[in-house]
Nucleic acid binder design. Structure first.
Lengths: 116, 116
DNA sequence: CAACTTGTTCTAGTTGAACTAGAACTATAG
DNA sequence: CTATAGTTCTAGTTCAACTAGAACAAGTTG
């Protein structure tokens, strides 16, 4: 599992981390039942704060992608498997956005508007 | 044209405003050639700062949706007309997201990840 | 032309979310 | 029991977003 964190980006670190793990779960590079690194360990290896990692884990828990339990850590659920159709739909949007040469911000804003 | 601004939201006001106008342009409720309200006027009627409105206008200019000229104001271009296929693709994503009961934040994050 | 409109640029101050930091606590695994 | 690892709490820092006001420049209008 590749976790990319960009300290210079303006998007919150916990968001970046959650997005990275989420993508890995959907792509299947982390499978259901697998355990994510302990928050303290991951925080150290990424050189960010423990709270930031835990917040990312909590985001994923709210989405139902991981179970979070004391003593055991963060375990990936099987929920990610159900995201395949969504991924396909998103790919279609990405393709359209590229032909129009729209920025990620613009496309994201359009999506958010459509979701309201 | 309906412009919705939520002061209590954490998403930047200029983003909200830009999104609102963008949606109107794509929906066709403001057409190419039409002039948007002068920044000072809009700022007053929405009870926000002029700079915030101008920033929203600049976002739309960067996307090519409006022309911005001194003395004349912000005029809508015909670019929005080319967004129809993108809108359809976005609608498909929205439909999938709703069946999975995902939050807007989650879907937006997935999209951003796919756009990288 | 002159007057007016409207976006542009500059400086400066305020606010709040995000992040950091550290400690104490608690449920679970082994 | 002991170690692990998430939970909760308090507190301080930083930076983008927003506000505010003024001076300016390039158009439009009469």
């Amino acid at each position: 599992m590749l976790l990319r964190i960009d300290q210079s980006s303006t998007t919150p670190l916990f968001d970046q981390l959650a997005a990275s793990i989420r993508a890995a779960a959907i792509a299947g590079s982390v499978k259901a039942g697998e355990r994510l690194p302990a928050a303290r360990d991951l925080a150290e290896s990424l050189d960010i704060n423990v709270h930031t990692v835990l917040r990312a884990y909590q985001v994923l828990r709210d989405e139902g992608l991981v179970d979070l339990r004391r003593g055991r850590g963060a375990v990936v659920t099987d929920r990610a498997a159900r995201y395949s159709q969504l991924s396909a739909a998103i790919d279609a949007v990405v393709a359209e956005a590229r032909t129009l040469e729209l920025s990620p911000d613009t496309v994201a804003a359009l999506l958010r508007e459509a979701l309201r």
